[in-house]
Design a protein around this nucleic acid. Structure first.
Lengths: 249, 249
DNA sequence: CGTGACTTTGAGCAGATTCAAGTCTTGTGG
DNA sequence: CCACAAGACTTGAATCTGCTCAAAGTCACG
């Protein structure tokens, strides 16, 4: 029995980990989630999962890699509006939405599971799951608001610092950080389209953070050399990311 | 009978008007909404309705004036994250949220109704109302995403143009526009905190729009002198604001 | 080991900010 | 109904942050 629990813990995927933080689940709920994560498919980097104007079908769960919500302007400029990282659920609203006002695409190679419309409805028939998903959506909304502040009222360096802090917290929640760092499998162009800057300026600002001894990047690995100081620079307060703090249990 | 219907139409307030656009309501639903709007109280400009960190109680409906969601940085910089205009409902999530991650305050003198927690739950017991409120929340989310694009990827002039187009559509929906214009009872400082700029730069950019013959402002009244051209400048597509388009009926 | 995508760096420029002063509005009390 | 005060708007000049354009360097992958 002990072993089984331990076994469960070891193999639990990001979706399960994340939703457990969003509310208390029953064992049956957890089995459902584990089932969803069991069958994933690979998607290459730079692929669109949903295009603007589509009618979404069912719900998508990311289990590996980075995806994003984004919009394009006519001149080709892109604004990324959210990162979808392992454990994140996309388009829970599928059942209500007629037409996507934005696209969803991968930033790196990903693994994902699709939950068909009907199975999705089954999920929503389980109160604890519904509650957890709703809480997760609440956190997504709070994150979007924080991004608006980030772009609207912070300097280039501060924006990057804030983003890196946010990702550290989010990735920690699903066990994807180690030793003050994590894999950030995206380009400086992606960072630019996230923070409303140019890739050139992202490059210089990253240089500043590096020279200040706050971060280090080798390959895809990002190390936060001085997290407390980085958080101070970014004026980062993690409250908005904590489901149990934000939402009632 | 005809007269009654007409009477109903004449006196219907912004809340009712807005939610009717968000989904088909029964007569009983409409009576409930009309009841909510019947007793409002006045709030002066610059007052906080909800403070960051508060546990929200019930739900707020704006019936007159402009309010907003906002956050402050430690240095005093403010970022406005949403406008609440007549008919808008604030903190529908009240029943789930433990702690507000942002504040809500008035930009102009307002009239508003508060719906207590319990009465709010009564609302949610009516499926058509729940559905309409959910659709309204969906539009709010889409609007927030559009604002991120606005600040992240549009120039100063484009940002203002886009905001003015958005407000024209939203105010039209509740009958608050006339002759290509509307009352915009907020300061250039508020516009700056909305668009991520300085009030000085807002002033100069407004001048540009005025010189281009696109807008005119006298007192609180804003006139859109050439809406088609303004929409073109802003690359404005109203899709994201149309509930019936965005959400399934 | 070559090719394409990404990163890095430089130089010049443009958009936006800051600071500051002056003007206009608006609301209030006398 | 006027005068005043406070806040909001306008404008100029100097500065700075971030952008554009361009070229060279690096890395990963076939």
């Amino acid at each position: 029995m002990r072993l089984m629990v331990s076994d469960r813990a070891v193999t639990r995927g990001p979706l399960l980990r994340k939703l457990q933080l969003c509310g208390p689940l029953q064992e049956a709920d957890e089995d459902i989630l584990a089932g969803i994560e069991a069958s994933t498919r690979a998607v290459p980097a730079g692929a669109d999962l949903i295009r603007e104007g589509d009618r979404p079908e069912g719900m998508i769960v990311i289990t590996e890699g980075f995806a994003c919500r984004y919009k394009l302007r006519e001149n080709g400029a892109r604004q990324i509006m959210a990162y979808l990282i392992p454990g994140d659920v996309c388009d829970l609203d599928a059942s209500v939405v007629n037409r996507m006002d934005h696209a969803v695409g991968t930033l790196s190679a990903c693994r994902m599971a699709r939950v068909a419309q009907d199975n999705g409805r089954d999920l929503l028939r389980r109160p604890a799951l519904t509650q957890a998903l709703q809480t997760a959506a609440l956190v997504d909304g709070a994150t979007l608001r924080e991004w608006l502040v980030n772009i609207g009222r912070r300097s280039a360096v501060e924006r990057l610092a804030h983003l890196f802090c946010e990702l550290f917290v989010r990735l920690s929640a699903v066990g994807l950080t180690s030793e003050n760092g994590y894999d950030l499998p995206i380009t400086q162009i992606d960072l630019a389209d996230t923070t409303g800057m140019t890739s050139v300026h992202v490059n210089r600002s990253l240089g500043e953070l590096k020279r200040a001894g706050l971060i280090e990047r080798r390959g895809k690995r990002l190390t936060l050399r001085d997290l407390p100081h980085l958080m101070e620079v970014a004026e980062f307060r993690a409250d908005y990311l904590h489901p149990m703090d934000l939402a009632l249990a």
